[in-house]
C-alpha cells in the first residue's frame, strides 16, 4: 500500500537525541467546523515536528501547508466521512495522491445547498495564505463511499488508512459497535480502548483532531530518531506509522 518511496515537501536528517512529536489529525480553515485561524502561520508555530492536515472530505488546503510550514514535515491527509457515518483518515506521501483521492471523494458526494453563516465557512487558501475562495458543497456530510470502498481508495493511491477517533462519535466502534476485521490502524480517544486494541495487535494512534489552534499537539505520537530509515520525510513518517514505530501519549 505505501510502496512508493516518493515524497514531497521538507525533509530532515534525524537528530540523534531528538524525540519527534507528531500530531497527525489537524483540521484547517477549510473544514466547516474548524476555526478560521487554522492557517499555516498559526498551525505551524506549534511545538510539533510532524503534522498531518486532514480536512473533512477534501485535501484542497494541504498544498498551502506543505508550502508554508517550512520547518515541519507536513503529511498530506484527508478525513473521509463514509456512508456509515464513520470517519477514516488517509495519509499520503505525495500531494498528487491525496489530490486524486480528494477529487474522487468529491465526485462521490451529493451537492446540497448549505448556509455557511450557520454551519461554518469552508475557506480555501493559496500558497501565500490568502483566503481565495469557499467550497460551497458542505463537507460535514457523509459521502456515498462505504468503509471498504474508502479504505480501498486510500490504499490504491499508496496511502495509509486509519480509523479516526474510533471510540467517539463518527468513530467506527462508536457507530458500528465493533472494529471491522480488516482494521489495522486505529486512532483512539480513550485509554481503555488503547489498551484493548494494543492487546489485539492493532497499531493505535493518539492524535488531537484539532479544530482550534490550542488543541494542536494536545494529543500526539512520538518517534525516536531511529524510527526512520534515513531522512525524515512524508514517506518515512508514514512507513514508521505503518510499522508501529512510535509511542503514544500513554506508552
Amino acid at each position: 500500500m505505501i510502496g512508493m518511496a516518493e515524497s514531497i515537501g521538507n525533509e530532515f536528517l534525524p537528530n540523534e537525541n531528538k524525540v519527534y512529536k507528531a500530531d497527525l489529525h489537524i483540521h484547517s480553515c477549510l473544514s466547516p467546523c474548524a476555526d478560521l485561524t487554522m492557517v499555516p502561520s498559526t498551525v505551524c508555530t506549534k511545538d510539533i515536528d510532524i503534522l498531518a492536515i486532514t480536512d473533512h472530505n477534501t485535501a484542497e488546503n494541504v498544498a498551502a501547508f506543505v508550502c508554508l510550514c517550512k520547518d515541519k514535515v507536513v503529511i498530506p491527509g484527508i478525513e473521509i466521512h463514509t456512508f456509515e457515518d464513520v470517519h477514516i483518515l488517509g495519509y499520503f506521501s505525495t500531494l498528487s495522491d491525496v489530490m486524486e483521492v480528494s477529487k474522487i471523494v468529491s465526485e462521490n458526494t451529493n451537492p446540497l445547498p448549505y448556509d455557511p453563516e450557520t454551519f461554518g465557512y469552508q475557506l480555501l487558501l493559496n500558497e501565500s495564505e490568502d483566503f481565495v475562495g469557499m467550497l460551497d458543497n458542505y463537507l460535514g456530510f457523509p459521502t456515498n463511499l462505504s468503509i471498504d470502498q474508502t479504505i480501498d481508495l486510500i490504499e490504491k493511491h499508496n496511502g495509509l488508512a486509519v480509523f479516526a477517533h474510533a471510540d467517539r462519535k463518527f468513530g467506527v466502534i462508536y457507530q458500528l459497535g465493533i472494529l471491522p476485521k480488516n482494521a489495522h490502524f486505529v486512532e483512539v480517544r480513550k485509554r481503555e480502548t488503547w489498551q484493548e486494541l494494543k492487546s489485539t495487535g492493532h497499531i493505535v494512534l493518539t492524535s488531537s483532531d484539532a479544530h482550534i489552534p490550542d488543541e494542536i499537539g494536545s494529543r500526539k505520537i512520538f518517534f525516536q530518531n531511529d524510527a526512520f530509515s534515513g531522512k525524515i520525510d512524508t514517506h518515512s513518517v508514514i512507513s514508521a506509522v505503518a510499522l508501529g514505530r512510535f509511542r503514544t501519549i500513554w506508552d
Partner: peptide, 8 residues
C-alpha cells in the same frame, strides 16, 4: 434512523 446518509 441514525445514519445521516440514509436520513438525508
Amino acid at each position: 434512523g441514525d445514519l445521516l446518509s440514509i436520513v438525508m
